[in-house]
Design a protein around this nucleic acid. Structure first.
Lengths: 147, 147
DNA sequence: ATAAGATGTAATAATCAATATTACATCAAT
DNA sequence: ATTGATGTAATATTGATTATTACATCTTAT
């Protein structure tokens, strides 16, 4: 199974806030239009990003702002905020290996450290990319458009 | 979403072949017992591993054998064989970003290379672990048991 | 004060992949 | 031919994702 599109949606949302936040009020309806995703889904993601302290959402008046310098928000922060994997575990382990089989009752001992090793490599790479990278490339591609 | 348990199941299957293959015939029913997973699911995974050239399955008589030296079969080979992610893409991208929005029509330009970078880190780590590691640790944990 | 426009969230449905299960055709060795 | 196994189709169940409707609540402007 793939990692939920909540992740790419969240990055898209940040790119919109970067690009339009100074000119327009960035509402869930606006973001729903840009992403082509239902506004309630957008609001759920905004709620998760708010819960992680990455953005603020104005009640009543509406609109979204980022709470930190962009180079201090990593892909890993976003990935964790929107709960891309259950229980923080990238790999789904079969639930009940047999305790009657020597391999079955040891498979977690054998495998768990290696799964964590792989997961850590993923997380390390996610942590190396920040929203400053997104802002830089967004500005580049948008300015290329107007040539 | 998590990566399908087909991956941990496949590694469990190899650990069983390593451990029991010289003494018993390793059938899908035997593997179903050790993993506590339905034999038809096991047969589907065996079919995928066979399709990738990693094992041979004896028709009629039954039983499974590995086709290569264990240090030449990596976790990445297994991961690819059992199709853990759709289309080979780790991240699910929202399907139809708006072409009317400058961010929407550029979000793939902005994001795709970064998603590939993260996916490559995962795959590199998967490629660094082989079934020889599994065999070594399986033997260690099983011999620890009998002390 | 209240109307307007926005968020927060519950409830429900639709879709899709994963996994379980039954059934049976087919194969290979005895 | 019988036995025990694989290969696979068909169907059901479960669970997460995503869409959608509805509405309570909040803030600002009038």
């Amino acid at each position: 199974m793939q990692i939920s599109s909540r992740f790419t949606l969240a990055v898209h949302i940040f790119a919109c806030i970067d690009t339009f936040g100074s000119k327009y009020k960035v509402t869930s309806d606006f973001l729903a239009g840009s992403t082509n995703v239902n506004p309630v889904i957008i609001r759920k993601i905004l709620g998760q990003l708010k819960g992680a302290g990455l953005i603020e959402v104005a009640r009543g008046t509406g609109g979204t702002t980022v709470t930190k310098p962009l180079d201090e928000i990593t892909f890993l922060d976003i990935y964790n905020a929107v709960e891309c994997v259950e229980n923080g575990e990238l790999f789904h382990f079969h639930e009940n290996p047999s305790t009657n089989c020597p391999v079955g009752r040891n498979i977690h001992h054998i495998l768990d450290d290696k799964l964590i090793q792989v997961q850590s490599a993923l997380e390390k790479e996610l942590a190396s990319i920040t929203l400053a990278d997104i802002k830089r490339d967004t500005e580049r591609y948008l300015s290329d458009e107007s040539i």
